[in-house]
Design a protein around this nucleic acid. Sequence first.
DNA 1: CTGAAAGCGCTTACAG
DNA 2: CTGAAAGCGCTTACAG
Lengths: 338, 338
Amino acid sequence: MPPIAASGQPTLREVAARAGVSLITASRALAADKPGLPVRPATRAAVQRAADELGYRPNAMARAMRGRRHDQVGALVVNNPGARLTNLAAYEYLLGLNAGLEPHGITLSLVRLTDLDGHHPERVRALREQLLDAFVAVSHLPASVVERLDASGDRVVWLDTDRRAASGCIARDEAAAGRLAAETLLARGRRRLVLLRPAKLDHYSLAERARGVAAAAAAAGVPLVELLTGPGYVTDPPERLRAALGADAGLVLSTPTVALRTLALLAGWGLVPGRDLGVACCDADDLLVNGWPELTRIENPRHGLGERAAALLVRLLAGEAAPASETVAGVLVPGTTA
Amino acid sequence: MPPIAASGQPTLREVAARAGVSLITASRALAADKPGLPVRPATRAAVQRAADELGYRPNAMARAMRGRRHDQVGALVVNNPGARLTNLAAYEYLLGLNAGLEPHGITLSLVRLTDLDGHHPERVRALREQLLDAFVAVSHLPASVVERLDASGDRVVWLDTDRRAASGCIARDEAAAGRLAAETLLARGRRRLVLLRPAKLDHYSLAERARGVAAAAAAAGVPLVELLTGPGYVTDPPERLRAALGADAGLVLSTPTVALRTLALLAGWGLVPGRDLGVACCDADDLLVNGWPELTRIENPRHGLGERAAALLVRLLAGEAAPASETVAGVLVPGTTA
DNA sequence: CTGAAAGCGCTTACAG
DNA sequence: CTGAAAGCGCTTACAG
């Protein structure tokens, strides 16, 4: 790689020379974020013109080094090669984070972790080096990464993770989501519940939703059956699911991914949701909402949660020690499938 | 004692002092990427130990500035606030890019553009400043951003965009995808075709797929009807789609999002794909493949395409002027719905 | 209002 | 094999 300056990019020194002022004056004239600096308007204009003519772009690295402002944060996301889109919802979080950070000129870097990295976080450059001002942990992280973050002293915002603390956490009320989904099915006259959920409860939301569904079933005195899905989000064999269904059954879907897989199975069997059985989902992302708007569901505004986490990050970077945590409840959207 | 860095993080100077060597020697001892450097094993070990004891993390900014290595690239992705997940497939590209870049120690930053930014690319920090070594343009970008990239002299890899050049582009053969999907339906005995696609052809793939489907229909001498979906990926009203279907009809779905919406409609109508009509999709991402494995489809390995783009970026950063472009054909997966 | 000096933390020449 | 010097591009004190 050629040296940065040799890449043909003009430096501030060249801008200053062209404007006929010193390097320092040029720096101040272009410091848009410090409007109070004493610079003569004519000087500022001359520098600005020189910068425009040369196509000057400030070197963010140099600025970061001298001015202690990187303005870069990293999003820690788990994504295993074998199950690439298990954490698809993370993308909606990332977009919300980005939307909330961009107005502040803060850049978001994607720090992808695998469970393998989980055992060797020192191999991840973003964790090994001083590269980012802060991190946002998205959804579930390996324990070794969490330990390293805690030990590092880095600033971290926890977005939809199982961490509960007075500050720095954005979480959801998932037990309420499970209860709401189940209660809605029962209110529509379904007399028994079937919960379809991933076998592995690796994220707090999965266990809490199951608890909420169980609580609703117990309160109503109706039977509840749990069916588990494997890595491919299929009950094995699918006929076990089919056998458990019926017009008196309310099928509670645990996640958007499970919902999509179930939708395809129902379609293949010619079973009409809402008529041949009741269906409700404890969680819905933008994709599911757009693709299956008829679905009775609890919507979690992930984009908005990402923006909230961004607001926490901004305050953290501004020096605020401990911005308070927030818990957000999902919203029931009735639909027609319950 | 050397001064403590204001960030609280130990510097290389402190490591050197602790190890009893000079700053320069410490730098060389830790330069893992230059194994040929002459450093005595004992010296290297002492420096390494001092670094470990202090919890030293090299400052990537300083290294970038002096050592001419940022090792950060930006992924340019369009995402409009009003239609957040239109570009969902981008996430799969990002994960693939990340997987391909990480082994080289290259970090990926998310540079989100809106169509609004499209008119004001100078407002996007990553474009305004020198922050990233190179860019990867993902899918469709606003013309003003493309112009700015071309004018900037920045290194760019074009991933699934409509740019066709001898170097630096990873693209897909989309006309073949449309043709394949249509031909598969006809081979299963469907006697007329219905193409369901977004009204707005803002990505090259949409127009090419439509062309491929039309070519297949013409070659077989069967009628073809095009139905258009709006922003919410619904035909308005949905009954227009229903009226067009039938056991003799082969329904060609243009995109994964259209496929998901259609799946929900068919399920609501109790129409069984493969029995009550034929269905095939011109494109499938990981989510659709996992959720609807029965679907007859053309699979586009976006993760793999991202990895290919990463390989191009690595070669670009290594100084190679023009790594050759690649065109990748999707793979037909028969399924049971045609 | 403007400029000379210092230095952010590191690596790359160049001498020993 | 190791160290003193220079400097990447910029901003932040401090003087005028």
